[in-house]
Design a binder for these strands. Structure first.
Lengths: 225, 225
DNA sequence: CAATGAATGCTAAAAATTTAGCATTTCGTG
DNA sequence: CACGAAATGCTAAATTTTTAGCATTCATTG
């Protein structure tokens, strides 16, 4: 259950110092919108603290969550390198502080510190393979297994204290593109096996090793070859 | 229907020259295996000619195609930057020539040409957002719309002469993780609207503008906001 | 031009998933 | 500690999708 490394952990102290100096700090409260899909002010954003949730609202009002990033992670690369507008709505999860670096300052910074480009390559590569992996999951795995993997993703990206994950079944359904009924049924299956425990607005991983084994057993990519 | 730019189109003549000099040419025949999932010789590969198909074989023998890259595109970045083994089986589609650059030579090259890292950032960013987009599609769009988008992807990545796409319905089913019956039914719907024509082992886009409109009308992300 | 393998077309039953309710439990708050 | 909002639990019908066939069409080749 690897997790992609936050950008900040890949930078040297000097690089971080200059990055912070080049950026501007912005504070957001829980659920506050950071940017809307389609807006196109180019720049790199780094999460100094808190978490950011990414997703799309369909016109039917339905929300699909695409990602959740925590401290040290960055976003907005597409506005820098691919000249794209923001692909997702971004909202703060809890009190969140963002460092915003304009495209111009970022380009200067990159020239001064080649290590920053290297670090972004690492981050983007990891994230690309996570996304490909996720897409494969949807096509190949049972709902139970997808939920198990998603729980590990929450643990990895969220930085939660324990193995208790503050997530509603509705959120899981959003994230995986399923109905709440299907999610509930699959969670029930995992619970019956003693792998998780269900709470009100939270899910506890009761048997981490067991849950990992569930994934391995049900994901043929992990099978010996 | 944007398409991510091949790496080679992003490099200067000097960069291409040195890249080619650092690499080693390998030739493959149609369907020949280039590398298996799990192998871990690090290096960057660039497609000089031909096409490469990426996918996974499940232990049940079922094959899921994850991607198809054409001339000028690169692969293997994850072995360079994320230290990962190959995530997918790669097979040649048609006569294919690959330029393989070892990790060591690539690192030297990167130091000499900072533009190469920049170009890879562009490529990886585009590819990441394509992958995220694809994952969203699976969760949000009807089968018809997903097929329409997939046809455009084939056109864009394949470099086919006309709007006739040499793809079996079985291949579409593999790529989208659906059954052949569902694919056939959805194709029938698109055909009845006069958007496509079905052949033996191929699909023709009969009304490109109409098919694009179908996607726009059914993908709320394209709706005005 | 007949034979053959490969692909599509079609069908119906089985299985999975969603939808739309309503009941119940939980948790914070007045 | 009663209340209300929010979340989960549960159910059954409706819908979608897959599975498993078999029939038909197409293209190649001997």
């Amino acid at each position: 259950m690897e997790q992609n490394p936050p950008l900040l952990t890949l930078l040297s102290a000097a690089e971080i110092r200059d990055l912070v100096a080049a950026g501007e700090e912005r504070r957001f409260t829980d659920n506050q919108n950071i940017h809307a899909r389609g807006s196109d002010l180019p720049g790199l954003s780094v999460i100094k603290s808190g978490r950011v949730r990414f997703g799309i609202f369909g016109e039917d009002g339905r929300y699909i969550q695409t990602g959740l990033l925590g401290q040290g992670h960055c976003f907005g690369e597409a506005t820098l390198f691919a000249n794209m507008p923001r692909a997702y709505d971004a909202d703060a999860v809890g009190e969140t502080v963002i460092l915003s670096v304009s495209k111009k300052k970022f380009d200067d910074l990159c020239d001064a510190h080649p290590g920053i480009a290297k670090a972004l390559l690492v981050t983007l590569t990891s994230r690309l393979y996570e996304a490909l992996d996720f897409a494969d999951d949807i096509r190949r795995l049972s709902i139970e297994t997808r939920i198990a993997k998603q729980l590990f993703r929450f643990v990895a990206s969220g930085g939660f204290s324990s193995e208790t994950i503050p997530v509603r079944q509705t959120d899981l359904a959003y994230a995986l593109g399923l109905s709440r009924v299907s999610v509930g049924k699959a969670l029930e299956t995992l619970k019956r096996r003693g792998l998780i425990e269900l709470g009100y607005g939270e899910i506890r991983i009761a048997d981490r090793a067991g849950l990992e084994n569930w994934v391995i057993d049900h994901d043929s990519r992990h099978a010996e070859r």
